[in-house]
Amino acid sequence: MITLQINGLQVKVEKGTTLLEVAKFLGFPIPTLCHMEGLSPYGACRLCVVEIGERSNAKLVSSCTYLAEEGLKVRTASARVVKARKMIIELLLASSPQSKTIQDLAAAYEIRQQRFKQEYEDCILCGLCVRMCEEQMMAKAIGFRGRGENRSIGTPFDVQAEACRLCGGCMYVCPVCSLRCTYNEPEKAICGACTNLSPPCLDKEQFDDMMCYMDPCVACEITKD
């Protein structure tokens, strides 16, 4: 067991517990975006920053990837943490202002200004869909491509991957594209993808309900009848 202090509270936790898990267990709220239970921690969005150490040694770390250490002193809502978090939300809001998840976060953290140029990106590269596809759906159909500003998520060669069985898991976990159907530009509102989609479970292998996130789904309606 490891003893650490979190917001002045002494706790004993198992070895290998992340700071985020400790804080959640004690009820300290830490916002997250790229974290999801059941998926490996990734530390991409930096929303879950907490401050560790003292005075000049104090530093910000991402609590979802930082493991509990003996005698660690953690502050989950110090002025520095809140300032950093607000900045991150503001930047995320600038890159994807159409995302409901990010709008809600901004509202919760009282972001009242928008100092950066709005980009209307439909991806913040949080990697949730990539991990979902690999770790929960066992498909590995999508992944990161390119580097730097050309980095994107998608299938190899931009063609539909054989490994993909259209389970919809990637869309289910995505914090940005949940509004992709209406998008921010009205002329793009109807892409027609859903009407052209042939439900894979009809002619391909059958999967449990747990392995499909298409809801509502034509195939389910058909099989029910």
Partner: peptide, 11 residues
């Protein structure tokens, strides 16, 4: 998987 290899090839 092809995804990983494609990721390396484009990186």
């Amino acid at each position: 998987s092809l995804v990983d290899i494609y990721g390396i090839a484009t990186f």
